[in-house]
Design a protein around this nucleic acid. Structure first.
Lengths: 199, 199, 199, 199
DNA sequence: AATGAATGAGCCTTCATTCAT
DNA sequence: TATGAATGAAGGCTCATTCAT
């Protein structure tokens, strides 16, 4: 997964859209930096300051915090989504593909301070974010899960939504607790899911 | 596990302590109610209002929010802790004991709005709460886990702290998302732990 | 000047008054200790705690903070007042007597954290204190001043009230600023007063 | 010394900065008024109300109370500082210059309710204010003092810092006690200082 | 008479959000 | 469009003071 933003590739095709786009980009870069530092709930002002713009500009581009977060992480979420089919094709087994994808997702969540919490639906003002995550990744996760389950000959007792949200939850607070090993727990959860719940 | 507070059984033995004790109890009841409604981070003022007391009264009894939360849930945590050895003795297998205990714990966490988040160490001002949970329940969970692991002939790849915190995390947001089945995920996590991580 | 309280001399004559008196004494001792530590504006609760009594008891004995402070320092103020005539009689010159007395007073004010501020009349709720200080010490200071002025053959441009309050003010904050030499300034002020203001 | 703010002389050169500058000015004016009424420790809310703005606006402009107070009185402090050399040049004698300057300073302190207290270093949250006063005025006072001392052929027993702080202290409470004549006492203190302490 | 629990006013401070320029 | 000043709700916390027991 590439780093935060890759959109600027290709440079600015037209001067007219260059300005707005540059503004938007500065915002996203700044937000990404602040999110890592202070978490996804960082004060709007802090982001604006980092971007060197007024808060109004942030609100203009991203009326809700969720939309900003979505925009900031869209590329990585996209990369995550795209990695699903690819891993399925490239991996030795569907289970390996699922585990690899999950590891990817965990790394993403854990790296970004406080992002995991966004998988919860009720987090203040993260509606759009939650929806985006679910809409984009549940299907991907679902495919990998179905393949892996078929491979191991088990029926799952929980759906992809639950698995995804479970993973998200397991990653909460991972960055600030050295003793807590979210990655290991997530793989164990996957083990449990693939075992069908019989121990 | 019974509902929030059962201590008042037996009535007030002495008039002298009746007042203070009743006050404290009113606080705990009100706090319990508010916690369910608005979560563990509800404004102090809201709790005070619900209890029909001034904020000062809350601060007098519970200088920090953590202490209040601990007090509110102490009985249930205690019940949870005591259930560990009992279940181990009564259950058909150590695995069954572990699963039963975990179910108990999950029910507790899910029932109380926002309580699960307290298992995280960084939640603003919840140090005492976090410490209490960890100190009291990690050993209990550890015993159950060890017994179950020995029973199934597996070595665990994560310690009791991680299991407990993992369970806590899985329960976050469960109350407000009907589609999310924390209990099932937790049992699957246990399955994974007992499988040693081989699927 | 003796230390804070000397009243208990003579023991308890009667059991009936012994109790109340002991209460009162405990209060005064505790208050004296707290005043040194945290200043004259220390929270009532802190004093009550130190005395091992309830706050209500303090309010019963001393309805206003001023009354408490007056009571605490009454002996020393008294000693100060009594030192005036004595110094006048014993000193080589009236000026020496004045200077010695002033030094005594300064030591008293500086030693007791925050007490100097009480010479101001508007300090929240220190009316009684202010009145007591003024009533008791202005005449004493006045006599010394008059004698000294006569001795040096000058007419004063300010009255004893002003001199007393000026001294009090000069002592404000002396305890917490090592660089500030209240005692020296006070003696210089006396020099000025005795010079009649011609340099 | 002119009244609180004289900076706006010349009107607003550019429309763009008119708004912010007027806001700041309104704040300063309001604060100045409130300071006179309720002292320098007046609640932030009171100042905000007087200015007809929200408290946030105050915090935006002046994160700490000290900064606000400094801003409010900067011009006058500056005027005071600048008056030093001028008086030295214009006055008949260095002593006259010192006395004139001191009178100026006293008038400033006495006029502004509670400002004198700021010369104390421990006043809650007035660090910046104290530092500003000391940094700006001690040198000025020092020069005048040195010149006057040389003029009268005396060595001082206290430094300019002590003199300045002594003056500040003498002015405490002057505004609310008609009987108290801070100005006279200050001149007497100066007399004492110039006399070297020998009466 | 003593107690100390209860009260609640009041202060500070932080931000999300709006809106005139 | 961009700006960022202004707003004010919200929440935390501390005590002085009262009053039932």
């Amino acid at each position: 997964m590439a780093d935060t933003e890759g959109e600027q590739a290709g440079g600015e095709r037209s001067a007219q859209v260059g300005r707005p786009r540059r503004s938007r980009q500065a915002l996203l870069d700044a937000a990404a930096a602040v999110f890592v530092t202070s978490g996804v709930d960082a004060p709007v002002r802090e982001i604006a300051a980092k971007a060197g713009v007024g808060v109004g500009t942030i609100y203009r581009h991203f009326p809700t915090r969720s939309e900003l977060v979505v925009a900031v992480y869209r590329h990585q979420v996209e990369a995550c989504a795209e990695a699903g089919p690819r891993l399925l094709a490239e991996s030795a087994t569907p289970e390996a593909a699922l585990r690899a994808w999950v590891a990817l997702f965990v790394e993403f969540l854990v790296t970004k301070h406080g992002l995991a919490g966004a998988l919860q639906g009720d987090s203040a003002g993260s509606d759009a974010l939650h929806a985006y995550f679910v809409d984009r990744l549940v299907p991907v996760c679902g495919d990998l899960l179905a393949a892996a389950l078929e491979f191991v000959g088990t029926a799952s007792s929980v759906d992809a939504y639950n698995v995804l949200k479970g993973i998200g939850n397991l990653c909460i607070g991972a960055a600030s607790d050295a003793r807590y090993r979210a990655d290991a727990l997530v793989q164990l959860l996957i083990s449990g899911v693939l075992s069908g719940g019989d121990r």
